[in-house]
């Protein structure tokens, strides 16, 4: 399969890239810059990993940079993992417009525009296609300071369900993985005490493992999930 993956150079994205590459798939990885770890993957899988440096705060050049130049119109695309995200965390009374707009650009508007082009690409090639959004447990439980971030992920879940409904008849599936808190850069701003409090709210009493989320992403992309669409799949250590 040919898979487009955003946020490929670090954290969960890197794990997903690794999982897909080791299973023999081709990954079109996108992130602002290429990390040493992604470089190492590139060396291990020179023919399977294609990379484009792209900043998702810019939604206007997505078609040209990702679909015309990175993937190319002749290559069918079988899946898209919307993993890239930024976190602007604060209590609501401190809310500022500029960082909020930037986060919505990266977490919501650019992913919507990518999905637009993923579906158009699939229509041209007439191939089934699976879209996987990485959402967050914060949508469903609520945490102090995460209202704005959680709202971007809630937007993705709604968009995903409606994508599934709108395009299912053309072989497009769309699902969201509701990921629990992981030990990645995304949660690095949280204190040890905050993290401990979050993990205590899970059945397993531990952070969500990125490997487990990557495994779910690979499943949803595959034909094994052929009848799974419009769903939110919780991979969250059993958050209560």
């Amino acid at each position: 399969m040919n898979i487009l993956l955003t946020g490929a150079s670090r954290g969960l994205g890197l794990k997903i890239a690794e999982h897909l590459l080791s299973s023999g798939h081709t990954v079109y990885g996108v992130s602002r810059s290429k990390s040493d770890q992604l470089n190492a993957l590139q060396e291990a899988y020179p023919d399977q990993l294609q990379f484009a440096a792209y900043d998702l705060t810019d939604a206007s050049n997505i078609k040209t940079a990702l679909f015309d130049e990175l993937i190319g119109s002749d290559i069918p695309l079988h899946g898209f993992v919307n993993n890239a995200a930024m976190a602007y965390d604060d209590i609501i009374t401190n809310l500022k417009v500029e960082p909020l707009q930037e986060m919505y650009q990266v977490n919501v508007i650019s992913p919507f525009m990518i999905v637009r082009n993923v579906i158009r690409h699939a229509l041209l090639h007439r191939n089934p296609c699976s879209i996987v959004h990485v959402s967050s447990i914060s949508v469903h439980t609520g945490y102090k300071g995460l209202a704005m971030y959680a709202s971007t992920k809630g937007a993705l879940e709604a968009f995903s369900k409606n994508t599934a409904r709108e395009w299912g008849s053309r072989g497009v599936r769309s699902n969201a993985i509701v990921a629990g808190f992981m030990e990645t850069d995304m949660s690095s701003t949280l204190s040890a005490e905050q993290k401990e409090r979050i993990y205590r709210r899970t059945a397993l009493k531990e952070a969500t493992r990125p490997e487990s989320v990557a495994e779910m992403a690979a499943f949803l992309l595959s034909d094994k999930a052929a009848s799974v669409t419009g769903q939110n799949l919780f991979v969250d250590s059993g958050t209560i």
């Binding site: 119109s73 579906i119 158009r120 229509l123 041209l124 395009w167 008849s169 053309r170």
Partner: peptide, 13 residues
């Protein structure tokens, strides 16, 4: 509307 989307994509290509 879905056919028109496919038509658009094919015209564009």
């Amino acid at each position: 509307s879905l056919d028109l989307a496919e038509l658009t994509v094919r015209i564009e290509s």
